[in-house]
Design a protein around this nucleic acid. Sequence first.
RNA 1: GCCGCUGUGACGAAAUGGCAGACGUAACGGACUUAAAAUCCGUGGGUAGAAAUACCGUGCCGGUUCAAGUCCGGCCAGCGGCACCA
Length: 803
Amino acid sequence: MQYDFKKIEKKWQQKWDEAKAFAAVTDPSKKKFYALIEFPYPSGDGLHVGHTRPYTAMDVVSRKRRMEGYNVLLPMGWDAFGLPTENYAIKHKIHPEIVTEKNINRFREQVKALGYGIDWDREINTTDPNYYKWTQWIFLKMFENGLAYKKKTTVNWCTSCLCVLANEEVVDGSCERCGAPVVQKEKEQWMLKITAYAERLLNDLDEVDYIDRVKTSQRNWIGRSVGAEVLFATTAGDELKVFTTRPDTLFGVTYMVIAPEHPLIDKWAEQITNMDAVRAYREQAATKSDFERSQLAKTKTGVKIEGIRAVNPANGEEIPIFVSDYVLLSYGTGAIMAVPAHDTRDYEFAKTFGLPIVEVVAGGDISQEAYTDCENGVMVNSGFLNGLTVPEAQKKIVSWLADNGKGEPKVNYKLRDWIFSRQRYWGEPIPVVHCEHCGYVAVPEDQLPVTLPHVDSYEPTETGESPLANIAEWVNTTCPKCGGPAKRETDTMPQWAGSSWYFLRYLDPKNDEALASPEALNYWLPVDWYNGGMEHTTLHLLYSRFWHKFLYDIGVVPTKEPYKKRTSHGFILGEGGEKMSKSRGNVINPDDIVNQYGADTLRLYIMFIGDFEKTAVWSNSAIKGCARFVEKVIALSEKVKPGKEYSKELESAMHKTIRKVTSDIEELKFNTAIAALMTLANRMAEVGGANEAEFETLLKLLHPFAPHITEELYEKYNKGMLVTSAWPTYDEAKCVDETVEIAVQINGKLRGTVVIPAAAEKDEAFAAAKAEEKIAAALAGFEIVKEIFVPGRLVNFVVKPAK
RNA sequence: GCCGCUGUGACGAAAUGGCAGACGUAACGGACUUAAAAUCCGUGGGUAGAAAUACCGUGCCGGUUCAAGUCCGGCCAGCGGCACCA
């Protein structure tokens, strides 16, 4: 047969469409499987070969599950708001809507060419007003529940995009998207109180099946620290509150440090005798970006506050207070108690400023360095804590602080609230108006969506306001509460908004009464298996878990967690091991591969390329192996022998391969599943061809990976489509051969092999091994001290020279 | 600095503590061909040897075990993330 993959692939994609083979029906009488892939940002570059790795993987799993009888949902959509489209629109004076539509059409065509079993009737697009109506609705619910609030804060400001960036969007002090420097700027921003969910986001990780590295990075990102808040009296009268994880070292506090932005500095301005120096330091710190601060981290800087001193609550001693930018206002209380003997940063600072260093945990050498790794040490120089171990001292001091009203146990998180505003055009408008009388007022639900107005210019204003601020007729409105004049919020939402809940909309994408019907939500949730990139572990994944938990709290969704299982794939690098990029000229376009080899070969190769979870290097020659494999299967189809039962010579190979492919797919071991199929095909060729029963099984096992050609070859059996056929089953008892070749070792070294019946007991194995000529010779003159038998594997004789 | 991941043939990689290198690529030898491509058969970790075979071999050092790529302890190198989080 001439392998005309273009014709074959088109034919089957049409047939699947006509048969509605991938339509997922909400039907509680059927067991469901909801598979989710991260929906792409439809960039102007088109689909990247890297996209095909996760997509193909989830399609393989979905097709297998469908054949196993599950009601499968595998949806697709477009995360289409975002900066590149807006920047393109600015440059080419084309409306982002038009650019987006064009890009989506291209992406859809490319994705369809790969033959994924997607229910296209559920396609969504985050920039569709019917979609973002519900993004806005969720925001309003958060606003109503006090989780969305406006706050003046220093924000990351991209000097090129003229836009606020989330901390997560700043990479090495530069804008993640355009690479321009990022500076600090004060701005009023909408914030989402994700920190209110920190504890649950952390604890509920125990209830989900995420791969370990995903859980670990979420835990690290949330960054829970257990400690205490301690109140220090000051000579100014105010108390200075600090957070510490080491309250046991309280007697070792020799000075305090507050962040340059700490509000008490202003309050104390009159009493600080060197306020000029403090102000100067403060201004200097403010102009530095976070990046510069961390670059300068090697040498500690700071200014001592003259005229005010703090009092150590443990021993009543007066200690100096410093201002230094190594203390961050945004974590804890913006102030610390410094224990130079047991903290490296405090140690460095104390050395720079010649401050006393008092050892309170014995065991280190504080003349050389801070002794930090001291959980097992014993307290010294610590009054009533002396002689206690560190954990004992911690317990005792915390209750002492509480009893004396000087502190209390406290848990802190690294996780910060989510800066939710962007000063851009191409995003969801934040559905709030500002009224001079009533303040910020929610747009009433029945007025949603607040749609983006059409404008001529998408360029941000120089003051950093959104382009929307220039449209007077849109901005000026009336207050929904008092009817007086009001102004619309001109900030838009970040790209993470639409992707925080999209998996819910797939369940009921055309509903205009609710984001999805309770029936659909109850049936399909949670997502059974979500695969996506590691780069989304701390942002998208955390944000969407947060939104989902909120929706759970207000009774919209029935599950605490959105995703039952989360896995992650590795990147695809260009030939030569470098990242694919236009400038390197090593970008692989999936279209070219589909044209040259067909979608089935691309699908096979991208799954065969290596360990799914690890980075893989694309190879233009290695893909030929997969093309040859497809040809080999076609060749096998031409010499299929009659036979409805597995033949003796292939029987155990059939059962073993079914077992391996079935479990490998579930374990993300797609590469070895394909290797097993190749081995089986080779074996079939060796024995002069498979019979019908055997060949059909091969086609079924191969179908999730190479759906088109397998359908084509299956067609002649007149048994309907493989898509709706049943996944092959295996019999554990038939996975064994009658005889096995086992290794014979002497003192752990391989000395030969011997063929024995698979069911042989150990005595039979030992006898057979000893009967082998070479083994007998090697054993001569030795005394056997121990005999080990591993069924199906080996025997090992432990020997020593005979007396 | 901290956290995570990874070190196995020329290359991509396999291997519930049990015969290291399955499967595939490139390469080489042969068949077919006027020739090439394609295809088919074979070789395919290193060293020594004509060969049988022997010894060595999974980043390095040590340990546990009858048996270690795999487990434990200590390093080294590369990649990714976080970065003064008190």
